[in-house]
Design a binder for these strands. Structure first.
Lengths: 170, 170
DNA sequence: ATATACTTATATCGAATCGATATATTGGAG
DNA sequence: CTCCAATATATCGATTCGATATAAGTATAT
């Protein structure tokens, strides 16, 4: 997961660790810890997928090797966006996926979100009609869950619409 | 974290592992894995904070002991809702916090979300005005991050308003 | 009746990730 | 010219995840 993210980010330009953390954090869905990042960099370097070139000061600017580029392609092809993070990471690199496969990725995600929405609504209704006192704060949590899933679907639908017009129109 | 959740949920009624997972999942922000849950139950049992009573079939219905109840109170008092999950978990048990302290918890969270929103907007603007080609999908990710943080603040403001009227009015 | 498949339920393993902490260096404010 | 914040790399133990195993109960189909 993190390896995939690193390879994808380094594909575009060499970066050092700290910079990778920032670039990933800027995407807004993963504030990766150093405790994950630096071991991952050493792991990838040992595997020969990235290599370090001394940068300014103590910085180690890493860049992808050719095997690393291939590895990234493999990971991109492997399907399975189970978790939210998986999907968002894949989306960040969707530009590297063949245009004709992109829509399917988005639509699969939409199905998953629809399912989640049904579950969230069921939980919410279940709690509301419960015999027990429906705690104010927990009801708020469940409502938040419903609303944010709805908002996510709406956002995704915009993306899907954009994707269709990009494919059809242009 | 998980220990806190378990103690809080068991406080209200005895439940077995599977049921705890469902109850926690229903809140909508944490689909805890069995690989976390069952070890946590054994850990808590060994510490004497919960005890198992045989339920129907293979079920083990756990209930909180008195030391467990005290431990929960301690954890509830310890401040520090750093992560999203921490906050939402605390919110789930906010009913156990003295009414006069509740508003502060919500307002601290609001401040944290405001900060995050500024960060997300900065990233978004930064990417848009970048010299590099601003990737369609990454822009979408950043926009999602901005929007969902805004929505979260709006949701929280409703909660805060409700809290104020509950304290002042009733 | 009986095979098939799904849900419930507990459990364990290794790997990924986190959060805290340590330690320098650099750049700017007072 | 000193102090403080941001930059940057690194490591540690603990937590959490994801996959997998197992098995009992329950429903559905043949």
């Amino acid at each position: 997961m993190l390896d995939f993210a690193i390879l994808g980010l380094l594909r575009e330009q060499p970066r050092h660790g700290y910079e990778l953390k920032r670039a990933l954090g800027d995407l807004g869905f993963w504030q990766v810890s150093f405790g994950s990042l630096y071991p991952a960099l050493r792991r990838l370097e040992k595997q020969g997928f990235i290599e370090a070139a001394r940068g300014e000061g103590r910085r180690k600017a890493y860049r992808v090797t050719e095997p690393g580029r291939l590895r990234f392609g493999e990971m991109l092809a492997e399907s399975g966006d189970d978790s939210d993070r998986d999907f968002q990471l894949r989306l960040a690199f969707l530009g590297y996926v063949e245009p004709e496969s992109r829509l399917a990725v988005l639509e699969d995600r939409r199905t998953a979100l629809q399912d989640r929405l049904h579950g969230a609504r069921r939980s919410f209704r279940g709690a509301r009609s419960s015999t027990r006192n429906p705690d104010r704060y927990r009801m708020a949590l469940m409502e938040r869950s419903v609303r944010s899933t709805e908002a996510d679907i709406a956002w995704l639908d915009e993306l899907i619409a954009g994707e269709r017009s990009a494919t059809t129109g242009a």
